[in-house]
Design a protein around this nucleic acid. Structure first.
Lengths: 336, 336
DNA sequence: TTGTATGCGTTATCAA
DNA sequence: TTGATAACGCATACAA
């Protein structure tokens, strides 16, 4: 690249000093309109770009946001991170921030001097990192609520699951089971709790037997539903499943047992992953807009970094997408 | 965070000067073993972490790698970026580098002072950015070969497609068509060229009519195959498709025409996207290891940044994954 | 083998 | 409203 101009270069040409240039370019008060105009013009002509490192050094800030990702993210298979990253990066860029990836393994190296704040994903129940970040006083926003005091971007899990259960009830289902992922994750227990509330709201029974836990994977879903149906009599005619990924496995498992989706059993997933409409049958699922979540998270984090008043938490809407994995209740087959 | 120690702090405690500390910590020659040992010990005790901004300022380097992503990446639906990012970040972190995301829209802001080098994805035919980066003298490694002189990490497209065609031939197919994505992308023309070569190697005819171009999307695949089969007589019994995503659409389109995959027509995809084994039928496809590609790219870029001898390009193997979208040739239906 | 001096480019403080 | 000066933390050239 040709030459990298500095405030000095601009100062010289504008017949002022570097300090004035700095003030002018940063819209500080105390610079006359004319000189400011002149300085800005010269800066543009020269294609001046400030040296972030120098600014960072004096201001003790890096102007970069970190996206914190657990080492073995369970959501890696789908496009969760692509989307969240796009949302974050879009608003961060506009605000002059860079977005960096921080993996669990390397938190310590990056904690100091590399990022001004973090956006946290896939938090676990008692997450040691939350404590670490608080101790280090590094600002963060969590994707998914941790507790009521910590800043977070959450989705309306409750509302989404309420829609799903309501829809199942409208199809005649009264016995609804739940297939859960690992309960160490916040989002998993949130989804389960919401499920319980939704059942209650509809006056439906909650049978402990109708719940099954497994890893968040296709194999997990399969295994969970097979185990459940083998041990239970008077089984559910419908299942709410923790994630779309597990839902695919649940459909496998049902098929193993000679049960057809949606003819014999209805299933509803969560997330609306890209493959949700690709699989057979296309999944009825609760869609969340991860891209939008990313934008909110970045906005909130940047606001707090810049000392602006920021909402401590937002809850974004979700909506039920009706596809082919659900139909009217049909007890005949299950009861044999 | 408690206190951030500097080289000064260490120097004071070690009874030496900051310069010596710097040299010791960076393994430069000219520091006695004892003092070096002492300095290192103190640094560890204090939990010293160097201030990257200060270092960057003096060395004119940022110690961050940029992953350059087009604004509307066609591969966004699948986990391409998640995987590549993971590969890049793993090796970058170990080498002390941070990885940042650079979107097309914001290249200019980030070009200077924010990244030391770039890893390029989804390059187009005459990519203006390549010229820009060369003009700015910013080192880069491209995912997918641009030309013979520019550093790149590529996959053995030729080998993979050869395997695929060979497999189809072994199943009795002699009339093989090709469904292509937008020819502005390098990878698309690479795949098509390899296809032509593979046909030639097996003495198979290449009919211009058996090729169809469409956007890299599910709808694109569907549309491409339907158009092709409507205008052509004596149609192919098998298709090679540019991406798994389009392959899903091709299967849709075939079904529209009353054709079953794999009974009537065989199809082979490319990439082995996460959903490749989730769809019906599970796709036979050419698998590439994007994660590994990311690791190589990061390694190469860091080597060049640090002045080490680096390979200008590597070609990683791919392999044919046989699933259910292919079977023995069956002309009966098509010919009616 | 170690110390001294200097500069990287910016912002901030204070004086003019 | 502007200028002079210092400081951020580190690395390096050169002197001791």
């Amino acid at each position: 690249m040709h030459k990298r101009y500095t405030v000095q270069d601009i100062a010289k040409r504008a017949g002022v000093t570097a300090a004035t240039v700095s003030m002018a370019l940063n819209n500080k008060q105390g610079v006359s309109a004319e000189t400011k105009q002149r300085i800005v013009r010269i800066a543009n002509e020269l294609g001046y770009i400030p040296n972030i490192s120098a600014r960072a050094l004096v201001q003790q800030r890096t102007y970069t946001l970190g996206l914190f990702i657990p080492s073995s993210p369970s959501a890696f298979l789908d496009s969760y991170f692509s989307n969240i990253l796009r949302g974050i990066t879009e608003v961060a860029t506009k605000a002059g921030y860079l977005v960096s990836i921080v993996y669990e393994d390397s938190v310590h190296e990056h904690l100091t001097y590399r990022v001004d704040g973090l956006i946290l994903t896939e938090l676990k129940g008692r997450d040691p990192y939350v404590d670490l970040f608080r101790k280090f006083k590094i600002p963060f926003v969590s994707m998914g609520k941790v507790n009521d005091t910590l800043p977070s971007v959450d989705i309306d899990t409750q509302g989404g699951i309420m829609q799903a259960v309501k829809y199942l009830v409208s199809l005649g289902h009264r016995k609804i089971g739940f297939i859960a992922g690992p309960p160490k994750y916040h989002y998993v227990v949130n989804r389960y709790r919401s499920f319980k509330k939704a059942l209650h709201a509809h006056g439906l029974p909650l049978e402990a037997d109708w719940m099954s836990v497994a890893p968040n994977s296709r194999a997990g879903g399969r295994q969970a539903v097979v185990r459940l149906l083998k041990r239970v009599r008077g089984a559910p005619t419908a299942f709410l499943v923790c994630t779309d990924l597990m839902t695919v496995g649940v459909i496998d498992g049902l098929k193993d047992l000679g049960l057809d989706v949606p003819h014999d059993v209805s299933v509803i997933g969560f997330d609306d992953a890209p493959y949700a409409e690709l699989v057979q049958p296309p999944l009825t699922t609760i869609r969340q807009d991860v891209y939008l979540s990313g934008k909110y998270a970045a906005r909130m984090l940047i606001d707090t970094l810049e000392g602006k008043q920021s909402t401590v938490s937002v809850t974004l809407p979700v909506r039920l997408v009706r596809r082919k994995s659900t139909s009217t209740a049909n007890d005949s087959k299950i009861y044999t």
